[in-house]
């Protein structure tokens, strides 16, 4: 493994795609891309292409799932069969079911669930093309789609991963770095409230390295948050222009 991983960062300290260790991949975000959904967002983060759609709040079916004191959030993370190099079976895999839960739990703290009891919000995340860090990009897109649907929220949620590659702490890992690298730490943040809603770690890191990675990931989240806000406002830019 050590032989392979040495190639991940070159002599100049640049990564496989020419990024610096603390650099994000190029990100493009668009809000309100689907007319049939109540809210939607599309994100491109490097080679990742992800679509998020929101339906609701609406009555819960089947009815026994409804909660008398708050709404429920249902989330489906799904990878398209063509999203990866080798065809992925369209049936939800163990990993997808887990990520659905992880994304749901990262979004839940940001929503005023108690406002509309006995209702449900459905979140659909469709990965069209995957290249590492899809859970973070999915959270970023889904939180924008929620805001687009007009659901009352405490804050937007921005997510970003950091990890260790060739003994260096790097930001926003792509697929090869994730697979060969030593560790991956995805973090989701509510930037205005300064609250973390998701923190995972895959691999091994020393305590100092972990702290360094989390701080780097938080920095990345804040950068992504700025882009999220811009994208959300861009949907209403024509509204503003006519006004002035």
């Amino acid at each position: 493994m050590s032989q392979k991983s040495e190639k991940l960062i070159d002599k100049k300290g640049l990564r496989l795609d020419g990024r610096k260790p603390n650099e994000l991949r190029p990100i493009k975000i668009e809000v309100g891309v689907l007319s049939n959904a109540d809210g939607s967002a599309y994100i491109e983060q490097g080679k990742n292409k992800i679509l998020a759609a929101i339906y609701g709040p609406k009555e819960v079916h089947p009815k026994h799932l409804a909660l008398p004191d708050r709404m429920i959030l249902r989330c489906r993370y799904h990878m398209a069969p063509f999203s990866v190099q080798e065809r992925k079976s369209p049936a939800p895999s163990r990993r997808e079911i887990e990520l659905s839960k992880v994304i749901r739990e990262a979004l839940e703290p940001a929503i005023f669930l108690e406002y509309y009891p006995r209702t449900a919000i459905d979140v659909f995340v469709e990965v069209l093309q995957a290249d590492g860090g899809t859970r973070c990009a999915s959270i970023t897109a889904a939180s924008l789609a929620l805001a687009d649907a007009g659901i009352p929220m405490k804050d937007l949620v921005a997510a970003c991963a950091a990890g260790k590659v060739d003994d260096t702490i790097v930001l926003d890992l792509m697929d090869t770095e994730d697979k060969i690298g030593a560790a991956d730490v995805p973090v989701a943040l509510m930037p205005n409230l300064d609250a973390i809603t998701l923190l995972q770690m895959d691999g091994t890191l020393s305590l100092e390295e972990f702290e360094q990675a989390v701080n780097l990931a938080l920095e990345g989240c804040r950068k992504i948050y700025a882009m999220q806000k811009e994208a959300l406002k861009a949907r209403y830019v024509n509204v503003k222009e006519v006004e002035e």
Binding site: M153, K154, D155, N192, K240
Partner: peptide, 9 residues
């Protein structure tokens, strides 16, 4: 009349 997004202080 300035535009705000969820979470803006």
């Amino acid at each position: 009349r300035q535009i705000v997004t969820p979470g803006d202080l």
